[in-house]
Structures are given as C-alpha cells and as structure tokens.
C-alpha cells in the first residue's frame, strides 16, 4: 500500500499535513470557532482585517488569542476589497499586524451579488504584492488560463472557486478544476463554494492540493460535527486520488468469476 504518512504539501517553505484550510467567520462565538477549528484539524486558518471595535463585540477575545500564530499559520485575507489599491493596503496592514508575516490570501471581488473575482484587478494586485515580497495565495475563477497567468506572476498557490463564495453549490466545473491542476506547478486549492463533505472529497479526487472553506462548516446545523466530516472527506478524497480510481465504464463487469459455474 502506498505510504501516506508523509503526504504533505508545501507553502512558502513550510510543510503541512492537513489539506483542509478553514475560515474563522460566521461562527456563533469564539468558543464555537475554536471547537470547529480543532475538529477540522486545520493548520492554516484565515482571518480578516477590520477597523478596531467595529464588527466585533467589545470585550470579546481577539481572534489571534483564540488561534495563536505560534500554533496555526494565520492567513490574512483581503475579503471585501474590490480594487487593487485596497487589497494591497489590507495586505500591508496584515503584515504589520502579524509581525512581518508575508503569507496572504488575495481576493479582489467584482460585484456583491456573485462575489466573483475581478480578474483584472486580481492580476494587478498579485503582481504588486509579489514584487513587494508577499507570499500570495490567490482566489480566482475556475479559468485555467488565468490560473496559469497568476502562477507565472509568482503566486505561491492558486485557489480557484468551486462555486460562488458562501453558496454551498459544490464544484460547478470539474473539468476546469482538473485542467488547472494538470497545468499547475504550484499548489492548487479549491476555495469557496463547497457545501458538504462530498464536495470536498471531489475536489481532492480531482487532484487538488487542498480545500479552503468557511461557510460549509460555520453554517452547518452542527458546525463542529461538520468540521470533523470535512476533515475525513479531505483525507478520503486525497487517498482516493493517490490510490488511482478504476476507469468508469458504461456497462457492468461481473465481480464474481464466471468460471466454475455449476449450472
């Protein structure tokens, strides 16, 4: 059997065992956030950057106390940014907040209804951030050409969406995700749109290096149990990918031998 005990993937010079990356938004409270992240087994967690004392309850613990940066790799995002300039400003603030930490998740959105990426602004922001020394993991469309371009710019990981952010629709275009994976020399992670465990497993079976999700866990009736389900789905999907699935056939192929029939 293939040994999967050392099956890791690498980002900015660090090896990760868990291929499930999780967001920290939309939870009921910090206790639920902590419990869900624990159950997910995630080593990389995303955070957002917002004005102090706006959008958080006074007296509530800081997310970085709940998820200490010495235990988790903190991945600050640029969620809510609709242009290159605000995305770059957000990354610089995040780097300062995290004492020079250069890993960021770049997302530059196009409109509020779809939250699809503005690819033109994303490319421009990625270029500026890479030049400034950031390790950029970039959210983008499921477009193989753009994914390749982002890799060429120097992004350390490309993260195509499965479906619109927070939609839970699952992977809408498996063939494009497969093409992006086949073309890539950097890790490809599905980011956004996963709804349930089978969606995560499909992403891994397609050969993705990991999956980043938030709402699929946080909006489940029992987020902690869903976090556990996602952990297993990611592991199952990864093992299925490494195992190499049987070819699909249109018609049946008997599992019991036909030789030795007594009638």
């Amino acid at each position: 059997m293939t040994d999967v005990s050392n099956d890791t993937f690498s980002l900015a010079g660090r090896e990760y065992r868990s291929r499930l990356l999780v967001g920290t938004g939309k939870y009921k409270d910090m206790d639920e956030t902590r419990a869900a992240i624990e159950a997910s087994g995630a080593e990389i967690v995303t955070i957002a950057v917002r004005r102090t004392n706006i959008g958080q309850n006074k007296g509530e613990p800081n997310i970085l106390d709940v998820l200490p940066p010495d235990r988790f790799t903190i991945l600050p995002n640029t969620a809510g940014c609709y242009d290159q300039k605000t995305a770059v400003r957000t990354c610089k603030l995040a780097r300062e907040l995290l004492d020079g930490h250069t890993l960021v998740k770049l997302e530059v959105l196009g409109d509020e209804k779809t939250l699809f990426p503005d690819v033109i602004q994303t490319l421009a922001a990625a270029e500026e951030l890479v030049k400034d020394g950031f390790d950029v993991m970039v959210y983008t469309n499921d477009d193989p050409i753009v994914a390749k371009r982002l890799e060429e710019i120097g992004c350390i990981a490309v993260m195509p969406l499965a479906a619109p952010i927070g939609s839970g629709l699952g992977i809408r275009n498996k063939l494009n995700i497969m093409t992006i994976v086949e073309n890539a020399k950097v890790p490809i992670l599905v980011d956004a749109g996963v709804g349930t465990a089978s969606d995560a497993a499909v992403a891994m079976e397609l050969g993705c290096d990991g999956v980043l999700m938030n709402t699929a866990i946080a909006a489940a009736r029992d987020p902690v149990l869903m976090a556990s389900a996602m952990r297993k789905a990611i592991e199952a999907g990864r093992e299925a990918f490494l195992a190499g699935r049987m070819p699909a056939k249109r018609f049946a192929s008997a599992s019991s031998p036909l030789d030795g029939l007594f009638f």
Partner: peptide
Amino acid sequence: VPRGEFDHHALREADRIEIVQAIGGG
C-alpha cells in the same frame, strides 16, 4: 505606519487614521 514609528509620528490637522485588527473571516 510601522509600530516602531508611533512614538515619533506627529499627527496633523485633518489626518485620516485607520486602526485595524484581526477578526474572524473566510
């Protein structure tokens, strides 16, 4: 403005300041 410069960064009339922190997000 890096943390190390807070002490000697003089503020001016009409400056627009943003103070941010990390919060939960996806």
